[in-house]
Simulated assay, not measured.
Amino acid sequence: MITKSDSPFPFQFELFGNLYHYHYIFETLAFIMGVRVYYYLKKGIPDPISDEHRLWIMLGAMLGALIGSRVVAVLETPEVLHHLSFAVLYQSKTIVGGLLGGLFGVEIIKKIIGVNIASGDIYVIPIIIALFIGRIGCFSMGIDEPTYGIPTTLFSGMDLGDGILRHPIMLYEMVYLVLLFCFFMAIKNKTLINGDRFKLFMVLYFLFRFLIEFIKPYQSLFLNLSSIHWSAMLIFAYYYTFMIRLTRTIFI
């Protein structure tokens, strides 16, 4: 049973006599900054996709993310399937499901409107920035957000609100996102096939989430793997040919 401790987590602010998590503020800020960075990067860049089609693609991404984030999050705790309600479904969400659902939402919309051009490269940096800002909010929630890690004796262990030194998973992810940002900025002028940057981001991010899941107190969905594990493997299977091509480019 999780108990409270003298830890400063979770960070909260008081408004009209009620306590609120900063997570909600950072979540909103993440969305706003992601959109602003996207439009900043889009300036002066010739887009082979029309504005109308780009709006449809963004709509597909948002709807797919809305559905995917809820489905994967619910499957993280399989026992809730026996008493699933709209409230539980609405409150459950995970960025892994959002990215997965957004990807397939985009692909479905592109099939419908007849767009065959890769459309994801321009979103890589905005997504990384939005993720980083959002993760600050997740980290500030401590054990109130189910993203904390298992107990550890490593120097990085932190009391996130229950008196136990745990892996600060969100802090690890924030460091990883900074590394991803630096990496993609370093290769921004490198000539790549259109769409490869987004594919590379998805593979690298989902690889991190697959590995980091093992130091979280996850619940098994199937074969002792969580819904996050299975989502990552779905991405690896989807981008299988890209991964083979990238490997051959690097080592051959």
Rank of each mutant, 00 (worst) to 15 (best):
E76R: 10
A186R: 13
G134F: 11
Y22L: 08
F206G: 06
Y40V: 11
L63A: 09
F184L: 05
I32P: 02
R197H: 04
N189P: 13
N194V: 11
Y39T: 13
I113V: 14
L89S: 05
N194D: 14
D6N: 12
V203T: 11
E145Y: 15
S226Y: 07
P48D: 11
T249S: 08
E107P: 00
G161I: 05
G64Y: 08
E213G: 10
D51N: 11
F208S: 08
I187C: 03
Y205K: 07
I32Q: 05
V74D: 02
S231F: 06
Q219M: 05
R54E: 10
L177I: 12
V96W: 11
Y240L: 15
I187G: 03
G105P: 05
I112A: 07
R209H: 02
I212R: 00
V124D: 04
S140V: 05
F214D: 06
L192M: 14
P217S: 08
F181E: 02
F210Y: 13
D159L: 13
A237W: 08
L59R: 00
Y40E: 04
I150K: 14
L171E: 03
T191E: 15
L200P: 00
G195M: 02
C182L: 14
K216Y: 01
K93Y: 09
Y123W: 14
I2H: 11
E76V: 08
S92C: 05
L81A: 03
M174Q: 09
G120Y: 01
I117H: 14
P78S: 12
